[in-house]
């Protein structure tokens, strides 16, 4: 077995950044504000934009949780990669909708 490397104390400390209580508290407050906003906007009829706004606010909230609470902000690039790939891949799954959007473009006789 290789001689264990004892010179990585600083690396260990630097790698895992300890976020201050203030940052966490500010994030928490921001999340609550966004929650109220989400709720308030949903009570106003914006037509098709209701869902856009709701998704936008949810995305911001998610970004706050991922970056600050989950600490991805200070993690390795690899963690960034894996943290984002799931959300990116969901887009591929949502390509399913392409089928539903285009399905009635064609006139089909009854019984098809």
């Amino acid at each position: 077995m290789e001689e264990p490397n004892h010179n990585n104390h600083e690396a260990a400390g630097g790698h895992h950044h300890v976020t201050s209580i203030g940052t966490y508290a500010a994030t928490y407050v921001a999340l609550l504000v966004l929650l109220v906003l989400t709720f308030a906007v949903s009570r106003v009829d914006l037509g098709a934009f209701n869902i856009v706004v709701a998704l936008g606010i949810s995305a911001v909230k998610t970004a706050l949780v991922v970056l600050i609470f989950m600490g991805v902000r200070h993690n390795s690039r690899l963690t960034w990669f894996w943290a984002s790939i799931g959300f990116v891949w969901l887009i591929l799954l949502f390509l399913t909708l392409g089928d539903y959007v285009t399905r009635q473009w064609v006139h089909l006789p009854l019984g098809w």
Binding site: L92, L95, G98, D99, Y100, T102, R103, W105, V106
Partner: peptide, 20 residues
């Protein structure tokens, strides 16, 4: 991950989707 729809060409999927 982008080809799954070719299993549904004849089962009722939209033909435009099928083309892609």
């Amino acid at each position: 991950f982008l080809v799954w729809g070719h299993h549904m060409f004849v089962t009722g999927e939209s033909m435009y989707s099928g083309m892609v």
